[in-house]
Simulated assay, not measured.
Amino acid sequence: MTAVVPPDIDITGVGRSYRGRSRTTDALRDIDLSVARHEFVAFLGPSGCGKSTLLRLMTGLDQPDVGTIRLRGQSPRTFRRTGALGIAFQDPALLPWRSVARNLALPLQVLGRRVRPADQAIRTLLKRVGLDGYEDALPGQLSGGMRQRAALARALVTDPSVLLLDEPFGALDQITRRMLNIELQRIWSSQRITTVLMTHGIDEAAFLADRIVVMHARPGRIARIVDVPFPRPRDPALFGHPDFTAFCEHLMHAMQAPGP
């Protein structure tokens, strides 16, 4: 009998509220979701629907008021301390006084691992994200897209089992964003890291994910979960295919339709 592999991410009954001076805002309510090992799940929704709040809860940077989150059976904080969790945000947050290679080395140094910026593993990872030759460059010398590539490489440097991405390409122009979507798919296909992406980009979610979790706001909640019908690997030409356009229209209607 084949052993059942438990989910890498298990979210059960999660809610989070914030109290202001005059009222309480429900940022999230009744979030239930399991993400299987090697699965790529995108949370899709407009600003204010709780995507970033949920990601912070998944990273252990914040705590839910109710419910539980487990990453491979551990609390997010415990899991993060092992180095098995990679995280990238919309702001690359690279240290401006450290070279690209030294920025990548930082998570390993925090974990107490012996590493040098010139180590082959770091150079190989920079080559994988298209930054070969920029090891010694400072963040201020890079374009926005290159800084996001460096941030993605830094999220991968600890060889994580789970990768959490919060609008990592949201501030980029459409051309650069699409190029990085293609790059991220290539990296995911080669490593099959369990990945959760928070995005408001419909075509981005449709191109990258196995399943798309459509979020509605006030309170932030799951409205629908949609399976992506396109087989892998996905060629960049898919962006212009009529079936892809129709699927993105379907997702748009799902975002706009009244939720449960």
Score class of each variant (00 low, 15 high):
Val66Gly: 08
Gly67Ser: 11
Thr68Val: 15
Thr68Pro: 09
Ile69Asp: 04
Ile69Met: 08
Arg70Gln: 15
Arg72Thr: 01
Arg72Pro: 01
Gln74Cys: 07
Gln74Lys: 13
Gln74Ala: 13
Gln74Ile: 01
Gln74Gly: 06
Ser75Asp: 13
Ser75Trp: 01
Ser75Cys: 06
Ser75Thr: 12
Pro76Ser: 04
Arg77Thr: 10
Arg77Cys: 04
Thr78Tyr: 01
Thr78Pro: 03
Phe79His: 01
Phe79Ile: 00
Arg81Gln: 10
Thr82His: 02
Thr82Leu: 06
Gly83Gln: 01
Gly83Thr: 02
Gly83His: 00
Gly83Trp: 00
Leu85Val: 02
Gly86His: 01
Gly86Tyr: 00
Ala88Lys: 01
Phe89His: 03
Phe89Trp: 06
Gln90Gly: 09
Asp91Met: 05
Asp91Phe: 11
Asp91Ile: 10
Asp91Cys: 08
Pro92Leu: 07
Ala93Tyr: 09
Ala93Leu: 14
Ala93Asn: 14
Leu94Arg: 07
Leu95Glu: 07
Pro96Cys: 09
Pro96Ile: 07
Pro96Gln: 06
Trp97Ala: 05
Trp97Pro: 02
Trp97Met: 03
Trp97Asp: 04
Arg98Lys: 15
Ser99Trp: 00
Ser99Tyr: 02
Val100Ile: 15
Ala101Asn: 02
Ala101Leu: 07
Asn103Lys: 08
Pro107Ser: 04
Leu108Met: 13
Gln109Thr: 13
Val110Thr: 10
Val110Phe: 12
Val110Asn: 10
Leu111Asn: 07
Leu111Glu: 08
Gly112Lys: 03
Arg113Val: 10
Arg113Leu: 12
Arg114Trp: 02
Val115Trp: 03
Val115Gln: 05
Arg116Trp: 04
Arg116Asn: 09
Pro117Gly: 11
Ala118Cys: 07
Asp119Cys: 04
Gln120Val: 11
Gln120Ile: 09
Ala121Trp: 03
Ala121Pro: 04
Ile122Met: 04
Arg123Val: 09
Thr124Arg: 15
Leu126Trp: 08
Lys127Val: 05
Lys127His: 13
Val129Asn: 02
Gly130Ala: 07
Gly130Tyr: 02
Leu131Ile: 07
Leu131Trp: 06
Leu131Met: 10
Asp132Leu: 10
Gly133Asp: 02
Gly133Pro: 07
Tyr134His: 15
Tyr134Gln: 13
Glu135Met: 05
Glu135Thr: 08
Glu135His: 07
Asp136Leu: 13
Ala137Met: 10
Leu138Asp: 08
Leu138Met: 15
Pro139Asp: 13
Gly140Cys: 11
Gly140Ala: 11
Gly140Phe: 12
Gln141Cys: 09
Gln141Asp: 12
Leu142Trp: 04
Leu142Asp: 07
Ser143Cys: 13
Ser143Pro: 09
Gly144Trp: 14
Gly145Ile: 11
Gly145Lys: 10
Met146Ile: 03
Gln148Thr: 15
Arg149Phe: 15
Arg149Gln: 13
Ala150Leu: 14
Arg154His: 13
Ala155Glu: 03
Ala155Ile: 05
Ala155Ser: 15
